[in-house]
């Protein structure tokens, strides 16, 4: 009994530590920020409109990736409200008409010293958008941006799990995640190809 009694505190401590590290830490580490507007990818890319990913997230002729499209892209259709949602009204009134950029939080924003050329992967290697971005293109609303309070980057970069082990092929955009695919596809990449 006393042995149990003597094991209990350290065991309790161990459990507390593990719980703090594995459960409390990820909960506390990430700050949830809502996107400024609720945008439905499904409504735009779904069956009714049938826009492809590259129709808004396309490439310039020199290969630069447009990324999150500027307000001009939305203005092409939404010069005036064409639906009846409250978010669209806000879009038209506060952003399209004064041509003000929407402050979207970018889930996959990489640090400045990392260079990911979309065109080489999408056009050059023919990789589908879903491979890295999952089913983001079919969502009806934008999930909140989970920002790491300490480093400032999004949760999408590290990955869903706090251990950093990827849950799926499209989870995590750390260097190790990129290198995993490079190893499988047997594509060389020197340090300088991605760091500048």
């Amino acid at each position: 009994m006393s042995r149990l009694r003597s094991i209990l505190p350290p065991l309790l401590g161990l459990l507390l530590g593990l719980a703090a590290g594995w459960a409390a830490f990820p909960y506390l580490l990430y700050e949830h920020e809502a996107q400024p507007l609720s945008f439905s990818h499904a409504a735009h890319a779904g069956e009714t409109l049938g826009l492809g990913c590259e129709d808004c997230h396309g490439f310039e002729p020199d290969g630069t990736f447009i990324g999150v499209p500027p307000i001009e892209q939305c203005a092409a259709c939404h010069e005036e409200a064409i639906g009846d949602s409250a978010d669209e009204a806000i879009l038209v009134r506060d952003y399209v008409q004064p041509r003000r950029e929407v402050a979207w939080r970018v889930y996959s924003r990489e640090p400045d010293n990392a260079y990911f050329p979309h065109v080489v992967h999408v056009r050059g290697a023919g990789i589908a958008c879903q491979r890295c971005h999952g089913e983001h293109g079919s969502t009806a609303t934008l999930r909140p941006f989970q920002r790491n309070r300490v480093s400032g980057y999004g949760r999408d970069i590290w990955g869903e799990r706090i251990s950093g082990i990827a849950t799926s092929a499209s989870d995590g955009k750390k260097m190790s995640d990129c290198l995993r695919c490079h190893a499988t596809e047997d594509v060389a990449a020197s340090c300088q190809d991605c760091h500048r």
């Binding site: 490439f59 020199d62 290969g63 260079y115 050329p117 065109v119 080489v120």
Partner: peptide
């Protein structure tokens, strides 16, 4: 890198 991107954009 920019030259490679341009080449990829042009196929």
């Amino acid at each position: 890198q920019a030259a490679k991107a341009k080449a990829a954009a042009e196929g």
